[in-house]
Write a protein that binds this DNA or RNA. Structure first.
Lengths: 192, 192
DNA sequence: GCCGCACTAGGACACTTGACCTACAAGTTA
DNA sequence: TAACTTGTAGGTCAAGTGTCCTAGTGCGGC
């Protein structure tokens, strides 16, 4: 049960870091959520940074798994990119409450000048690269694909931030529609 | 000198909240920055929330002043909206380091469930309304104008977030160009 | 001169933080 | 039985937190 227990701790920490932020979440918070004593905590993780590291590793692994699933699920690059866009809708209720898990963690770590910032940014890079690959398959040059991937990421981030600020679910749906229109336009303008 | 001193404290707190985040910034940090003793601090502000309130009020006032200046400076609504877009470029070096002051504060307060969140969101609303007004003058319906204003805000937020994560100044310039193109396209498609 | 006032320094307070330790129970191995 | 590993509980530590108090400064008005 040791693996499962550790996994349980990381999962709760992941949730709390997302919902409350890293800085605000203390050992006591996590320990209480996992129902273990504060002291016992130190057996599994010997510093707060170590938990953060584990949480980021977990997110990276989950993201990898998700991207792989999309790769199988979507039967065209366009459909796969749609999977990416749709997470805004799928996770909308959480986004309204807590914002984007990616963006909020990254910006918090950036402010704290935390050493794990680079690892957190790897999450962004993962999406960036994957989106780029899909776009290359669609016929864009690697450079064009990367530019479009960054644009997609930025749009998603902005949508999440504003939806969070104004607690506006309709805004998400509206912008998702615009994002799809924009993407189709880009694909249409490809030389064939 | 009491006004000036208080103003000085708020200015430093504003800077530190932006650069380090609200949660992480302590009384000691601010007191040290202002060169006063920690205890003295309590004479001017009797709680941390009160400082936050003052900082937000300051930002609201500054934003108001900025929007008024744009109103005089830009001789057309299109030129005024360009002022808004250009702050991404003007503040790019700070954005690369700390992200967007608006978005990062809002998302942090949202996570902390802080009561001042609504006041912080007023900052967003200020831009939203001002942008909407400009777009109405351009000929859009109030509803269209608000939709476009929200879109503009979201794009800006996304650009700031991604630029911050990847520390990429070229990305800002690239996206600013796209934003201008998009806006001109919207204006062109207006019925006349 | 004296008083009142805006302002300041420094510390006390109760509490929380991450970090660390010891004690111990249960299970495994020898 | 004895030694060892694994996991847990609970307490302790120094440092730091926001809050609050008191003593005192300098200065303008009376």
């Amino acid at each position: 049960m040791q693996v499962s227990k550790r996994e349980h701790i990381v999962a709760q920490a992941d949730r709390l870091f997302y919902e409350q932020g890293y800085e605000f979440t203390s050992f006591a918070h996590i320990a209480e959520a996992v129902q273990i004593s504060r002291g016992n905590f130190y057996y599994h993780f010997k510093s707060k940074d170590e938990i953060l590291e584990a949480v980021i590793a977990r997110r990276l692994a989950n993201t990898h798994a998700m991207l792989d699933a999309w790769q199988l699920q979507g039967d065209s690059p366009r459909a796969r990119i749609d999977c990416f866009i749709q997470i805004l809708v799928a996770n909308s209720s959480k986004i309204l409450k807590y914002g984007c898990p990616l963006g909020s963690l990254t910006s918090e770590l950036a402010k704290l000048n935390h050493q794990a910032l680079d690892r957190a940014n790897d999450l962004f890079s993962l999406f960036r690269q994957w989106l780029g690959e899909q776009l290359v398959v669609l016929g864009f040059s690697p450079q064009q694909a990367d530019t479009l991937a960054m644009h997609l990421l930025a749009r998603s981030q902005g949508i999440a931030t504003l939806a969070n600020a104004f607690n506006d679910m309709a805004f998400i749906e509206q912008e998702v529609k615009l994002l799809n229109q924009w993407l189709d336009l880009q694909i249409q303008s490809l030389p064939r």
